[in-house]
Amino acid sequence: MRETSVHTSLRASVPGVIPVLEAFLRHEVGKTGFRHVVFGLSGGIDSAVVAYLAVRALGAKYVHPVILPYRLSSAASLAHARLILEDLALPEQVIEITAQVDAYFANFPDASPLRRGNKMARERMSILFDQSADRQALVLGTSNKTELLLGYGTQFGDTASALNPIGDLYKTQIRELAACLGVPLPIREKAPSADLWEDQTDESELGFTYEVADAVLHLLIDERLSVQEVAIKSGCSVPLVEQIARRVRLNQYKRRMPLIAKLSSRTIGIDFRYPRDWGQ
């Protein structure tokens, strides 16, 4: 997709968010009584951005990235993760998930790549929350707005976290932010991948590019245009815009807490309404 005014305006405002995201991390981490943060470092651009933001906000001493490779994870991912650690002077911690994932799927040898990918994402989550307890560190989320809206993530896996500094930024905005933060070029230029199996890329799996997704999502969600209006303004076909809009709807469940059957006059999530910061 060619560069459009939508992309230009999406990116133009990105540098201004850096001080806000730094303050977000300092305030919201501080309120909980924690000082440290922990998160999975994949070698991709999203967790790289989170690492750079966290170091700026809290200082390297309080930032604990964990590399969580599976035996099929690409060698480039590990190399890129190490590049980030080196650049930010962060210590390396690698926890392999191969043994536990393979032990489980030994019982289910015919399991689909999707099941395997979801299981890996949940193993990583489970490790991060254990590390959280061990280090007294809050788990940071690394899902961007594009993934969250499209539901391109594993529920209770990579979408689980305590705080997510980048969840209101589209992928193309993350790229701009990465450039502002000085994330090394190889990480910014490679094709985005969940790296759950060999040669997987997000864009081939989704069936459209992030440039397309971001322009369509921004016009649908933020600008509240109709499918027809989005198609005209983005230059995408109506069926493609409809497909993206449908994905957003179908994946709403991933963005919400489980439904509770309402029985009383004060039901959690319905009319028992407190901010999350209530407990801080």
């Binding site: 990116r11 405002s13 968010v17 905005q173 933020d222 600008e223």
Partner: peptide, 11 residues
């Protein structure tokens, strides 16, 4: 409340 992204129409 601030909306740091001025690409947002409500910003």
């Amino acid at each position: 409340p601030g909306r740091a992204l001025s690409g947002d129409p409500h910003s």
